[in-house]
Design a binder for these strands. Structure first.
Lengths: 133, 133
DNA sequence: TGTGTTGCGTTATATTATAACGAAATTTAA
DNA sequence: TTAAATTTCGTTATAATATAACGCAACACA
């Protein structure tokens, strides 16, 4: 079975969890190369695809980056808030809102399969800093 | 004043309106090159930035593509529905939903500046086709 | 062990995007 | 009106993101 691939997945997930921030595929590649110098982009992208499909990792479309899931979002669409100042990304859930969203689009006959909801702005702590200065 | 740039913006906008579908920056580049062979990527990206800032064009983060705004969304966050079958993209507005969304994040002190809401799925007509087959 | 199948690593390349710089247009001040 | 300052644009070059394609290795099953 896909043993080799799973090892890459585990390594990626642990890097993402250790860092706790959004990393690009190439950031991850650089990290993994410290252990296995010959690893190449497709290996990373393939492993990321599995992790994203499984819900262990979220892809941030508006950053072209990836972040470990906190696990809050069990199969639910996640709402990612992204601080443009410090880069911190938080994962949120709002089943009702996502449901409403699908409902609005459903009125035109659209069948929603995957939701990309990413909100850019300023996190509480950067906001305080700004106010304090 | 920036006459040259404005001409590029107009050309891009008219290409996007004529096609009516999402185009990548390089799709647009190819179109414009039929008139002015020497045009280069930064020219396209700069013009697109202005058009997006003005709200005449939407950037689709999950497709790395651009589409002309229908004008429905006056300064409001738009909700883009994207059919993964035929590629059609529709622009929708739902001020209350966006407001709710900002409210949910606001509870954690996050101040929302820009919303990326893109829903992938199947449009009504592709759905019919699937059912009919 | 041989044969089929799947999935992985690797090479190569495609696609998307921007940095940096020089030239042209425009503005400002004399 | 012309010289200096400023802004914007075109251009070259390259960076960053992502995937196609192929061959080999691992496993599955007879």
């Amino acid at each position: 079975m896909g043993k080799r691939g799973e090892i890459t997945q585990e390594k990626i997930l642990s890097v993402l969890k250790a860092k706790g921030v959004a990393l690009s595929a190439y950031d991850i590649l650089d990290e993994l190369r410290e252990g296995s110098p010959k690893i190449a982009p497709p290996t990373i992208y393939r492993a990321l695809k599995v992790l994203v499909d499984q819900g262990h990792v979220h892809r941030l479309e508006s950053l072209n980056a990836f972040i470990a899931s906190t696990g809050k979002t069990q199969d639910q669409a996640s709402i990612m808030s992204i601080c443009d100042d410090c880069g911190i990304v938080e994962e949120n859930v709002a089943p009702k809102l996502v449901n409403d969203l699908s409902g609005i689009l459903g009125k035109t006959g659209f069948e929603a399969h995957h939701h990309v909801i990413e909100v850019h702005g300023r996190c509480a702590s950067c906001d305080d800093e700004g106010a304090a200065s």
